[in-house]
Design a protein around this nucleic acid. Structure first.
Lengths: 205, 205
DNA sequence: GTTGCCCCGTGATTTCTGTCACATTGAAAA
DNA sequence: TTTTCAATGTGACAGAAATCACGGGGCAAC
């Protein structure tokens, strides 16, 4: 696929190198792309779709940290790749997803030679770190109702739509809560006219 | 002070450069070193003491994220410095502290020229990211009693002592809880013979 | 000594959230 | 159409943690 427009900042030489050395790969919605403890062999750039980065607990709960969309890269894979260490997170394709895998052997060279790549890595890292900070803020300081509102807002922004197609159970998993709690809080939000509830869909006002 | 032994991996040339361009600075216990929203003008290497990295909420609560000790660097200051952006965290000297401040103008050059610096930055970033992940794990998946045990364990390891000099109120702040809750949980731990409680001091068994 | 100030202990109460049990509903499959 | 099943609604209850209200105790300044 023609991915260059997703990374307009990259210099032509860099694009050439990536084109030559990187491999494209597809995942189906639901595929696990990376799991805790796994060694990372390449850096992942997202071309299409959405990747959910989450943390798994003992009972298989999938606590959402953030999403990666087109034009974004997995900070964890970058850092782990450079040091050939294991990742501490899980990544799963939320939708059908296309990614570009850049072998780790290239990382050092790219970091040295291409300023735009270096900038991209730094920027990616800062972005993910800030998102993690926001997550910490939410779970440390906010109650479930506020976290739910934040979740819906982010979800809606991510998709650019007011209609969110997701079940209460799915939300509960992402927030490490339970379905009943989410259902109740959503009902309250509906009473406050913040949302309208439908089956498998929530409509933001 | 003679700080070179703290960073044995740095190549001689790099050490020379740092010696020439960086400035040493002292902070007293309690001094705020960096605050939310502040622009970062230099990267911080810790030489002596302990720096507490935390997140402040509306009511002034200081939610602990991690500590920086001698030989460690502030990942946030590195990243923010490179992009001259604002930090999203607070940093405060827990003890009297000595740091080395490296002006941001040097960062690009150092990253390019000195492989050991580059490695150090990457390693620092991975370390802090993993600590943040551990924090998320704790508040997302664990109850206060487990978080308290983790807190005490970490504190003790950090200082290399079994006797922790800290008030219950201080712990409550760090965990974003309340003194009464911490006191009660500590009492339970004492009944399980995990700790002995004294005034302003907790003795781990 | 005594005064004042933290620190700590502890019960009572409330709020938030998780859990259990079941009813209802809607949409797709048979 | 009926069947079936996942999604949702809701009441009752349990448990963790926050909050309120005190009381006692140690320690330092006066």
């Amino acid at each position: 696929m023609n991915w260059k427009q997703l990374f307009p900042q990259f210099e032509p030489e860099l694009i050439e190198l990536i084109e030559k050395e990187a491999t494209e790969r597809s995942f189906n919605a639901g595929d696990v792309i990376m799991r805790t403890g796994q060694y990372i062999k390449s850096t992942v750039l997202v071309l299409e779709g959405q990747i959910k980065i989450y943390r798994e607990n003992q009972d298989g709960g999938e606590f959402l940290m953030y999403y990666l969309g087109p034009g974004q890269a997995c900070a964890v894979s970058m850092i782990c790749a450079i040091q050939s260490q294991t990742s501490e997170i899980m990544a799963k394709a939320e939708e059908d997803t296309e990614v570009l895998m850049i072998p780790i052997q290239l990382m050092d060279e790219m970091m040295n030679k291409y300023k735009t790549w270096y900038q991209f890595v730094i920027q990616t890292y800062k972005g993910r770190f800030d998102e993690l900070l926001a997550v910490v803020d939410n779970i440390a300081f906010r109650n479930m109702d506020e976290r739910l509102e934040f979740y819906l807002k982010r979800y809606s922004e991510k998709l650019g739509k007011k209609n969110i197609e997701v079940s209460h159970q799915q939300i509960a998993d992402d927030l490490n809560s339970s379905r009943e709690v989410i259902s109740r809080l959503l009902k309250k939000m509906e009473q406050r006219s913040l949302v309208k509830l439908h089956r498998n869909m929530i409509e933001l006002s």
